[in-house]
Computed example of a mutant assay.
Amino acid sequence: MSDGLNDARAMRVAEIMTDFRNLLHHLVQLRATPTAEEYYLDGYSLLRQCSSEAQAILQTPFSGSSGASSGDPEQERQQLKAIITDAAVRRFRCQRAYLLANAALRWVNARNSILRGQKPNASHLGAFQQADATLRTERLALTDAYVENTLRTQDAAQGKWLNEDPSLAQIQHIIMSRQ
């Protein structure tokens, strides 16, 4: 028996997918050009990791049912709920990668500010260590709970319908099951 909320579910799918698309758009535009000596430094490695994560998200097949709409409201309800869950997991993964990539970009900018066009030398060591420590601290602060809170807070502030969004525990379980 349908509950009359399929229009709200369909709207929620569109909202989540729009957020997902916007996050992915920002992720694919991230570019850094490290020298050969800098290539494996933490910030540059993290940027590559975030880019790889975005590609992996795009290549992950849809996990919900793929049957065509039969006009049955109950079947549509189940299908929309599956799509909401799949889209929410993808958006969560993109948000996490986006936040990490921004931390890495702050590290790159700090490094560039320290160097001011010079080659790295011993006089830069203390400032580099501080930038590295800041990046580590930011990475530790970007917990799954923090990422989920950023999304829920943004959605709630915009008055979006969140009744059937998966919980953080459900998202984590789905991500772990896909690995």
Rank of each mutant, 00 (worst) to 15 (best):
Q154K: 13
D132C: 03
W107T: 04
E164N: 08
N163R: 09
R106I: 02
E164R: 06
R111Y: 11
N102S: 02
L125A: 14
A145D: 12
R136Y: 02
K119A: 10
L135N: 07
A141V: 06
L135S: 06
L115S: 02
N109M: 09
L125P: 01
D132P: 04
L125E: 12
H124S: 08
A145W: 03
G117E: 05
N112M: 01
K160V: 06
Q158T: 05
Q130N: 08
N109K: 13
Y146V: 13
N112V: 00
A101N: 05
Q154D: 14
R116G: 01
G159S: 00
R106M: 02
A122H: 06
T134H: 09
R136P: 05
G126R: 12
W161I: 08
N109Y: 05
W161M: 07
Y146M: 12
T137L: 11
A133C: 07
N112C: 02
A127K: 11
A133Y: 03
P166T: 10
L105K: 03
R116D: 11
N149C: 09
S113V: 03
Q118Y: 02
N121W: 01
Q130H: 11
N112E: 09
T134K: 12
N121R: 07
L162Y: 00
N163S: 12
L125R: 12
Q118H: 12
Q130I: 14
Y146I: 06
R116M: 09
R111H: 09
D132V: 05
A141R: 09
F128A: 08
G159C: 02
L140T: 12
S113Y: 07
S123H: 04
V108F: 03
N112L: 04
F128T: 07
A122S: 13
A141Y: 01
T137S: 15
R116T: 02
A127E: 15
G117I: 04
L140G: 06
R139F: 04
A101D: 06
R152L: 13
V147D: 03
L115N: 03
A133Q: 15
